[in-house]
């Protein structure tokens, strides 16, 4: 079982790394913030598998903390960088032209 869990952990790490390449390429800041969500799911799964594979129960607490903190990172982003609390002034048509 431990061998299999280690293999699963390695695989999850691989998917996380490949996804990070995409995140790094962006281009919009919102695309990059998806990294936080990625760590909130893939990262949590990875840590939970590792907690059992390495017999380190403390990693479960790390997983829980990571899940909760990933939201806080997004909240900081949308309120401080994008400022969703202020009314929009650019029409939606611009987004269509940008994402082709």
């Amino acid at each position: 079982m431990t061998l299999m869990l280690n293999a699963v952990a390695a695989f999850l790490l691989l998917t996380l790394l490949i996804a990070l390449v995409r995140i790094w390429r962006g281009p919009a800041p919102a695309d990059r913030m998806l990294a936080s969500q990625l760590f909130g799911t893939t990262g949590v799964a990875l840590l939970m598998v590792l907690a059992h594979a390495q017999s380190m129960p403390a990693l479960m607490d790390v997983a829980l903390t990571l899940a909760v903190l990933s939201v806080l990172a997004i909240v900081a982003f949308v309120t401080r960088v994008v400022r969703i609390d202020q009314p929009a002034n650019s029409p939606d048509a611009e987004s269509e032209a940008r994402h082709d």
Partner: peptide, 10 residues
């Protein structure tokens, strides 16, 4: 939250 950010600020 990210969807809303993209919607409000394309």
């Amino acid at each position: 939250l990210i969807a809303r950010a993209v919607h409000v600020r394309p």
